[in-house]
C-alpha cells in the first residue's frame, strides 16, 4: 500500500491545513460560506490518508485501473468545484459593486447639486 513515512508526512500536511482553515474561520478572515468546499476537501484527504484502502475501493467501483488515477480524478473534480464556486462568488460580488457604484454616482451628483443650492440661499 502506502509507505508509513509518506502517510505521516501527508497526515501532517492535512492537519496543518485544517488548523489553518479553522484559525482563519474563527478569526473571521475566511467566510464559512466559502470555506465549506475547502473543509470537504481536507476531510476527504484526511479520510484517504488514514484509510488508503478506501482509494482502491473507489477505483474498483469506478473501474479505474490504478488507485492513483482515481485520486487524480477525485482531486480534479473537487478543485473544479472550488473554482466554480469562486466564479459564482465573483459574479455576485461584481453585481454588488455595480449597484454600489451606480448608487454612489447618483448620490454624489445629488449631493453636489444640494450643496450648490445651499450656497445660493
Amino acid at each position: 500500500m502506502i509507505p508509513l513515512k509518506l502517510q505521516i508526512i501527508l497526515l501532517l500536511f492535512i492537519l496543518l491545513a485544517i488548523v489553518q482553515l479553522t484559525r482563519m474561520i474563527t478569526r473571521y478572515k475566511l467566510d464559512l460560506k466559502y470555506a465549506l468546499l475547502w473543509i470537504l476537501l481536507t476531510m476527504t484527504a484526511l479520510l484517504l490518508v488514514i484509510f488508503p484502502q478506501l482509494l482502491s475501493k473507489t477505483a474498483n467501483i469506478l473501474s479505474i485501473e490504478t488507485p492513483t488515477n482515481a485520486l487524480f480524478l477525485l482531486a480534479i473534480l473537487l478543485i473544479l468545484a472550488i473554482i466554480f464556486s469562486l466564479t459564482i462568488a465573483l459574479s455576485r460580488a461584481s453585481n454588488k459593486i455595480k449597484n454600489i457604484s451606480q448608487e454612489l454616482g447618483i448620490l454624489r451628483y445629488e449631493f453636489e447639486s444640494y450643496k450648490k443650492n445651499i450656497g445660493k440661499e
Binding site: I97, K98, S101, Q102, L104, G105, I106, R108, Y109, S113
Partner: peptide
C-alpha cells in the same frame, strides 16, 4: 449639463 461621474468603469450596460 448634469453629469454623473461613476466611481468605477461599469461598461455601457452599467
Amino acid at each position: 449639463v448634469n453629469v454623473i461621474d461613476l466611481p468605477c468603469n461599469l461598461g455601457i450596460g452599467g
